Amino acid sequence: MFETLIFEIKEGKCYITLNRPEVFNALNNKLLTELNEAFNVCRNNETVRVVVLSGGEGKAFCSGADLKSGITDPNLGKVLKATYNPLITNMRAIEKPIICKLNGMAAGAGMSLALACDMIIADKNTYMTELFVGIGLLPDAGSMYFLPRMIGTLKTFELCSTGRKVFMDEALQLGLVNKTVDSAFLEEEVEKMADFYAKAATKSIGLMKNILNKSFENNLEGVLNLEAEGQTQCGFSNDFVEGVMAFLQKREPNFQGR
């Protein structure tokens, strides 16, 4: 089905694994297109309750744009609008949680790709870097949207304008990742989180994601209205009925994500 990534759906979980280890999972047009297609499958498949995005077995999660493949069009803005931007927009629009399994270095657009996820569980021995400035570019693929919201503008400017490496102890302190673990336990931790979301109230979690996407662009009144609209949708969901019944019957809910 795909040439540059591994795609698998199993027990409510969709695993998307970048599969260009020979170039540290660098992003070329083919991989970007296939990633977008893979996320479209996740969006439209009702059995998928959570997505796990990983760099596979190599040393890197993603090293950013594949510069070795050559720059065929110096109009980089046009390239972004055709490839990176639709992918990042798609990831944020999917009303299902996306867990980034940060198994190795995330650089440039690879860091942006990680930041576009809803949760990052990382190998504590790896790092992130906004290395764009080293080749005379500015961060793209959403980094300058996600970073200020996570760590503020002062720290964002520092990381973007220096391109320095941020190792995971600092990343955890800054709030760039949710959890760091030894590489030997990374798979176990990610699976534990994926299992949780595969059985959770997917409808309400998707609406949470949607509202959080819009929270910085709204005032209090706007967010209150979004919460009310979302709560109405939850109130008519099967998961809400099941959740209340489980609470009254003092048992674990059996959510179906509907």
Rank of each mutant, 00 (worst) to 15 (best):
F2S: 01
K10A: 08
E11V: 08
Y15Q: 06
T17S: 09
R20F: 07
A26S: 14
L32K: 07
L32S: 05
L35Y: 05
N36Y: 10
E37D: 07
C42T: 01
R43T: 01
N45A: 06
T47Q: 14
V50K: 00
V52N: 04
L53K: 04
G56Q: 10
K59Q: 13
C62E: 12
C62Q: 03
A65R: 12
D73R: 10
D73Q: 11
P74G: 07
T89S: 09
E95R: 08
C100D: 02
N103K: 04
L115W: 02
M119V: 05
I121R: 00
D123C: 07
D123V: 05
T129K: 13
F132A: 15
L138N: 15
P139C: 15
Y145N: 08
G152F: 06
L154P: 05
T162K: 00
F167Y: 14
E170Q: 03
L172W: 02
G175H: 01
L186W: 04
E187Y: 03
K192E: 12
A194M: 02
D195E: 11
A198C: 03
M208K: 03
K214S: 09
N218R: 09
N219F: 11
N219Q: 07
N225E: 15
L226I: 01
Q233L: 13
E242M: 15
Q249V: 04
K250E: 13
E252L: 08
E252V: 09
